[in-house]
């Protein structure tokens, strides 16, 4: 099988590491070779963060390059636009519509671009945009936004719902399982 590439992008502190952990668990049980590349340290402090998840028969590079991503899962709208160039032709963007102003916008040095979903579609991307924050809040906590996004992403994979849920149970602390299962199911609706 040709290597599949999933990028998870967002703002430092939004919980993208749990999303990649969940994907890693799931893909490992399916017997794939996997590489997950993360960013730690300075970049976590509210900066733009990206995690690369690659799987297939044999995966070499730990990173995904421009024009290679099958999926870009974005926790924040501007970040989806920032990494758009990494999407391969025919690839899919699953994005939260939440907007978090970066410091240049806060200070007035730049403006937050408008109509980003439409602009990404106009650029030829297949965009699935939804309010993952509301979904997470409906499930019980805004922190479950990562799992709500995984729920939506799961619609485009052949794995069963139970396989995803088992990976969630294996990845989160026991006391948060019910919340995250609900966030996943609401995201998958």
């Amino acid at each position: 099988m040709e290597t599949k590439n999933i990028m998870i992008v967002g703002v430092g502190g939004q919980g993208s590491l749990l999303a990649s952990k969940l994907l890693g668990r799931l893909l490992l049980t399916k017997g794939y070779d996997i590489k997950v590349s993360e960013v730690h340290g300075m970049s976590q402090r509210g900066g733009s963060v990206v995690t690369y998840v690659r799987y297939g028969d044999k995966v070499y590079s730990p990173v995904i390059d421009k024009g290679e991503a099958d999926f870009i899962v974005s926790f924040e709208l501007l970040e989806a636009a920032r990494w758009l160039e990494f999407l391969k032709p025919g690839g899919k963007i699953v994005t939260n519509i939440q907007q978090i102003n970066p410091m240049p916008v806060i200070t007035g040095a730049a403006t937050y671009p408008e109509n980003l979903v439409q602009k990404m579609k106009d650029a030829g991307a297949d965009v699935e945009a939804f309010d993952a924050l509301s979904v997470a809040e409906e499930a019980g906590s805004p922190k479950a936004v990562n799992i709500a996004l995984m729920g939506r992403l799961s619609k485009f994979f052949d794995f069963t719902e139970e396989e995803w849920l088992q990976a969630i149970r294996d990845s989160v602390p026991a006391k948060h399982i019910a919340l995250n299962e609900k966030a996943f199911q609401l995201g998958r609706r």
């Binding site: 733009s48 421009k66 024009g67 758009l84 391969k88 970066p102 916008v105 671009p113």
Partner: peptide, 29 residues
């Protein structure tokens, strides 16, 4: 990265399509 290796050793690297307008940076804060 793989695209750098492709480019520097005379192969074609895949490309994606970026938005034409500038995307504000998001430095760590």
């Amino acid at each position: 990265s793989q695209n750098l290796v492709r480019t520097k050793l005379g192969m074609t690297a895949p490309t994606g399509k970026a938005l034409s307008e500038p995307i504000p940076g998001r430095p760590p804060v």
